Computed example of a mutant assay.
Amino acid sequence: MDEDEIRRSAALEDRHWWYAARRSLVRSQLKGLPPGRALDVGCGSGGNSAAVRDLGWDVVALDLSPASLEAARRRGLDVLPGDARELPFPDDSFDLVLSTDAWEHVVEDDQVAREARRVLRRGGRLLVTVPAGMDLWSGHDLALGHHRRYERPELIELVERAGFQVEAAFGWNVLLRPIARMRRRHRQGCASEMAPVHPAINAALRLVLWLESFLPVRSSRGISMVLVATKP
């Protein structure tokens, strides 16, 4: 993902339906957990880091991209440059490792998973979101610098192999998946879908994802996948 694409995404994060819904998802997954020390690996422009911080957590935001770090720093976050494959922290440093739509950017995602486990304290939680399903692979993925989209068994195996105990792995953005598949099947070229959206459409899409949170659809495939695991 090049720096210009990162800056475009950062400009959208506070108002775009997808980012807003993802922040709501993160907050819902942390509801009821006692705040502790958290690491956001591949923090992007820091929207999720800020949401976790606002829940009372002591958050460190980490990324390799200068544009991401600059945007996250503007949110008043504790920001560090670093590689997800070799985290600059001692063992057992965090109660939560968050990684939202980052693992697909790294060839050696097995190293990323092992490093997440290493820096977590015993009983610590891993919260990961990734793009789901290679049948949705398109120029959007190429534009964003993805190496893969994940299937549920593949992601679970990756995380368990790193030494985690998986608590949940479920689809997210399920209701919009048929539309995304149809669009990507007919779309030509290599271009990101992350672009400004008309306010009425933006509100409608946020409503769809809000309604989804009440429906029994998590066992279905979504545009994304969410995994929650703990370090035994």
Rank of each mutant, 00 (worst) to 15 (best):
V208G: 09
A180P: 08
E157N: 11
G76S: 09
I223S: 08
C43A: 05
M225Q: 04
A113M: 05
S9A: 14
L211P: 13
P35E: 11
L175Q: 07
P131T: 08
I6N: 04
E167G: 15
A113I: 09
L209F: 13
R114W: 07
E86M: 15
D4Y: 14
W210T: 15
G56V: 01
Y19G: 01
L120M: 08
R221T: 14
V26F: 10
D101N: 09
G124D: 04
R149D: 04
L227N: 08
S65M: 02
L33G: 01
E115Q: 01
A10W: 03
L126W: 03
H198K: 13
L176F: 09
D135E: 09
P131W: 06
M182V: 14
P35D: 08
A204W: 13
L87P: 00
R37P: 13
N48F: 11
D14W: 11
G145C: 04
R37A: 13
F170E: 13
V174A: 08
L127H: 03
G36I: 04
P66K: 02
E70H: 08
R37F: 08
L62Q: 00
L80F: 14
R121M: 12
Q165N: 15
P199I: 06
R148F: 02
W137G: 00
A51V: 10
H147M: 06
P34W: 15
R184K: 06
L98N: 04
D91M: 13
R27G: 00
R149T: 03
G47Y: 06
G189E: 07
L144T: 05
M182G: 14
D14R: 11
A168K: 14
G56D: 10
W17T: 05
L176S: 13
G82L: 00
F214W: 11
E167Q: 15
P196Y: 11
Q165H: 14
L77N: 04
Q111D: 13
S49G: 07
L64N: 10
F89N: 02
I6K: 05
M1E: 02
L87T: 00
A20R: 12
L207F: 13
D95F: 01
R73Y: 07
W57N: 09
L62T: 05
L215C: 07
P178L: 01
A20S: 14
V217E: 12
G82F: 01
D141S: 03
S49E: 00
L96V: 07
Q111Y: 15
R8D: 06
R75Y: 09
P66Y: 03
G222Y: 00
P35G: 03
H16G: 01
P196V: 03
H146V: 00
A50K: 12
E5I: 01
R22N: 04
F164N: 02
G36S: 11
R85C: 05
A11M: 10
H140C: 05
A84G: 06
A38R: 07
R121N: 10
E70P: 10
